[in-house]
């Protein structure tokens, strides 16, 4: 167990070191695009900083940040590891596949935490104040973590199943933005056609946005969303583990 934790920490450090040279894409995914989306949504809807609706847009920006970071950016890294042969460096070591995946997940959660915290600071700077107490902050942390884990599971599945790098990046790019666009994050749920709205309500991004908005507004009643996110995370990660090919057949 101790060895696995140490191995996962090494995998985390290897990927963290990448950020030194590749911080640009991470900042774009975690900060620049979500802030731009927040600003765009606020301007289009005429919502001012003090308006409670602005917290909804902030929740949307947090979810957008997680989605882009987990699927577009991290999915890209996983695809790169697989298709440039980097995965071989790990696969030829006496390393448990779970250590590799957990190392990646720690990296992902660290990115999500950094991205969310920065977004809250930026929001505060422009006058959007979240009403977070200690319990609310914990619930927001749980929401962010579970959302990240769930979307990372989706990334692992894509990275494992893609037949080529190009195909994989197409899926990660489409899903990274698509999961946020399909979820009623920046627009009211009733704006969607009924069937689409019913399906969208079950997207992890929808659950995450509802939970994030509630906690940012000072509420704590997010248990159903967290439970749904936990189940979806377990399912996505289990599928990802199952599909990931450590050894080829």
């Amino acid at each position: 167990m101790r060895r696995r934790v140490r191995d996962a920490a090494c995998v985390f450090r290897i990927h963290l070191a990448r950020l030194r040279a590749e911080a640009g894409p991470f900042l774009l995914a975690a900060l620049v695009f979500p802030v731009a989306m927040f600003w765009f949504a606020s301007r289009v809807s005429g919502v001012r900083a003090g308006d409670p609706k602005s917290l909804g847009f902030l929740a949307g920006a947090v979810v957008f940040s997680i989605s882009l970071t987990a699927i577009s950016w991290l999915g890209y890294l996983l695809l790169e590891n697989r298709f440039t042969g980097r995965l071989k460096l790990f696969a030829t070591l006496p390393l448990a596949p779970s250590s590799y995946v957990f190392g990646i997940l720690i990296f992902a959660v660290a990115q999500a935490a950094a991205g969310t915290a920065t977004l809250l600071v930026v929001a505060r700077a422009v006058g959007v104040r979240a009403r977070l107490d200690a319990a609310g902050a914990s619930l927001l942390g749980a929401t962010v973590t579970l959302t990240m884990l769930c979307l990372c599971g989706v990334s692992v599945v894509i990275a494992a199943r893609a037949r080529s790098f190009a195909e994989g990046t197409l899926y990660t790019d489409a899903l990274g933005a698509g999961l946020v666009i399909l979820a009623p994050v920046f627009y009211p749920a009733d704006a969607l056609p009924r069937a689409v709205g019913a399906a969208a309500a079950w997207l992890p991004t929808s659950c995450a946005a509802r939970a994030a908005e509630t906690t940012l507004a000072g509420g704590h009643a997010v248990a159903p969303q967290l439970l749904a996110l936990a189940l979806m995370s377990a399912a996505a990660l289990a599928l990802g583990f199952r599909l990931m090919r450590w050894r080829e057949d």
């Binding site: 070191a17 990448r18 040279a21 590749e22 030829t92």
Partner: peptide, 15 residues
């Protein structure tokens, strides 16, 4: 018990 040098394996450019 092995040390393996694969024919094609990518390294981490930024490390």
């Amino acid at each position: 018990m092995m040390g393996v040098a694969p024919q094609e394996a990518g390294l981490f450019e930024s490390l």
